[in-house]
Design a protein around this nucleic acid. Structure first.
Length: 307
DNA sequence: TACCAGGAGAGCG
DNA sequence: CGCTCTCATGGT
């Protein structure tokens, strides 16, 4: 073998490696995207900040994300030929300026937008979103993260991770949660939500509630369909509609948003939940869910500052 | 030790 | 319908 052929073959080998590595990496050009705020704003519960990256699992794929100026970098564990799954999850094609322009032009809304510029909504898997929010009641975000982490670790499937990296798991399918015993689910710290989670999983696994079809329904029908599931009331249904089913006018009202609405728009009067929901449905426009996310995040940041 | 949180769902007018 | 009360359980 000549020197040149050795050089040539090693060059080819190196090129192959580079091609394989390049296929695990993608740069998304996007402006006005605050990755940290978005991934920690209480809509998704599996993202962890490690060594300058945000690590998570989407479907059966491990990945990590890092922000740069007007873009972010994504890396996966196995080569990808098509990155639409990620572009869709992160909603990178959405023009945030157009969304913000639909918000009511009032002082509270301006303050909320100024405080959380770049905050976005994700487009998550409906089942993972639903199951996570069934576990969310009476829990803080850190506790929900712990529950979801345990469910994945014990009932999910291992996913491919980079060499020498800590193991990672997919979110367990409805059948897997339905097949788990109540005590197994309680061991994941789900507490009194365990029977609800298990029965909801069974209904989804049996096709009694078809989550793919929910996305196609008119919003009111979609909401009632979700509310047939045990442990799913108005608030959790609205979270799933907004964070996973693409209904960007869904407006989940939790205690934070309730406090914010009362303080900002009702001068502290004790407006009822129903009244606030009706107000929100008419006032915040076609992207009311986005407005809600800004108010929610603003209220939380505000509460932290006061502490 | 008590009390609180943050939702769902039952009961009631 | 809309409002009020109860439940369940880890954390302060």
């Amino acid at each position: 073998m000549t020197a040149s052929s050795i050089a040539s073959s090693s060059l080819n080998a190196a090129t192959c490696v580079d091609v394989a590595e390049a296929a695990k990496r993608m740069i998304f050009r996007v402006r006005d995207y605050d990755l940290a705020a978005t991934l920690t704003s209480g809509q998704a519960f599996r993202w962890q900040h490690r060594a300058g990256w945000w690590e998570g699992v989407i479907g059966a794929r491990w990945l990590r994300l890092r922000s740069e100026t007007d873009s972010f970098v994504a890396e996966t564990a196995e080569p990808a030929t098509d990155w639409r799954w990620l572009a869709d999850y992160l909603q990178v094609d959405l023009n945030l300026g157009n969304v913000l322009a639909t918000f009511p032009d009032d002082e509270p809304m301006r303050a909320a937008v100024d405080a959380c510029r770049g905050l976005r909504l994700l487009r998550q898997d409906p089942w993972e979103c639903l199951a996570s929010f069934i576990c969310s009641s009476t829990k803080r975000i850190v506790q929900i993260q712990e529950i979801v982490g345990l469910l994945c670790e014990r009932l999910g499937e291992p996913v491919l991770v980079p060499h020498n990296h800590e193991r990672a798991f997919s979110f367990p399918a409805p059948e897997h949660i339905a097949a788990a015993s109540e005590s197994e689910l309680r061991a994941c710290k789900t507490g009194f939500r365990a029977p609800n989670l298990r029965n909801a999983a069974r209904m989804v696994a049996d096709g009694e509630v078809n989550l793919a079809r929910v996305t196609e329904l008119p919003v009111l029908d979609a909401r009632s369909e979700l509310m047939r599931l045990p442990g799913v009331g108005r608030k959790i249904a609205d979270c799933v509609l907004l964070f996973a089913c693409g209904f960007q006018d869904a407006f989940p009202v939790d205690v934070w948003v309730m406090k914010a609405l009362r303080r900002l728009y009702f001068s502290h009067r004790r407006a009822s939940l129903k009244r606030l929901q009706k107000f929100a449905a008419g006032y915040f426009g076609p992207y009311a869910g986005y407005a809600q996310q800004y108010l929610f995040h603003y209220a939380r940041v505000h509460a932290k500052l006061k502490k």
